[in-house]
């Protein structure tokens, strides 16, 4: 997945930052929206997020298993809950939760994109969040060159 980030409070001509991630399961697709952080505990059945934005993209920093954050829902259900609440897409920072990629591997039916980011790409996104720097995010599929552009079957 390709993630473009443009800061809302900078001059329009400044170049967007480009980051990389991977789509979860079959969720590849296009999305854009304002970046908004969601605490991992805000994506539980009992909790409610009080966001008023319309077009937003949720970013969730997943914590390491040692921090004992109650796992109220499986990651896939957390992603679905965020999308149900209006997120145009969900970005999971999995830097500290290596098991997340495996958990979201074959997540079939996701109505909108769910992207996994880590390391420097994740750090840049979370850095913006921590400084409350309003940003707009564009997500799209990074087209690959064909693996087998020309093949014939010889028998």
């Amino acid at each position: 997945a390709m993630i473009k980030v443009s800061l809302l409070k900078q001059e329009p001509t400044s170049r967007p930052i480009t980051l990389e991630g991977v789509f979860a399961g079959g969720s590849a697709g296009y999305a854009e929206g304002k970046l908004m952080q969601s605490h991992p505990l805000s994506l539980c059945n009992t909790s409610e997020d009080d966001r008023q934005e319309t077009f937003f993209i949720s970013i969730v920093k997943l914590e390491s298993p040692e921090s004992k954050v109650p796992q109220c829902l499986p990651l896939l259900d957390k992603a679905r809950l965020a999308l149900q609440r209006g997120a145009q897409a969900v970005i999971f920072d999995i830097t500290d939760d290596p098991g997340a990629a495996q958990e979201l591997r074959d997540s079939g039916l996701l109505p909108r994109p769910v992207v996994l980011v880590k390391s420097s790409d994740a750090e840049q996104l979370m850095g913006l969040v921590n400084k409350n720097e309003e940003a707009k995010v564009f997500i799209d599929i990074m087209m690959e060159t064909q693996k087998w552009p020309h093949y014939d079957v010889g028998i």
């Binding site: 991977v22 789509f23 399961g25 990629a101 979201l104 591997r105 990074m142 064909q146 693996k147």
Partner: peptide, 12 residues
């Protein structure tokens, strides 16, 4: 389908 793209599972 020949324009395949990376699914999460192939990250590793």
């Amino acid at each position: 389908a020949c324009n395949s793209y990376k699914a999460a599972g192939q990250w590793e």
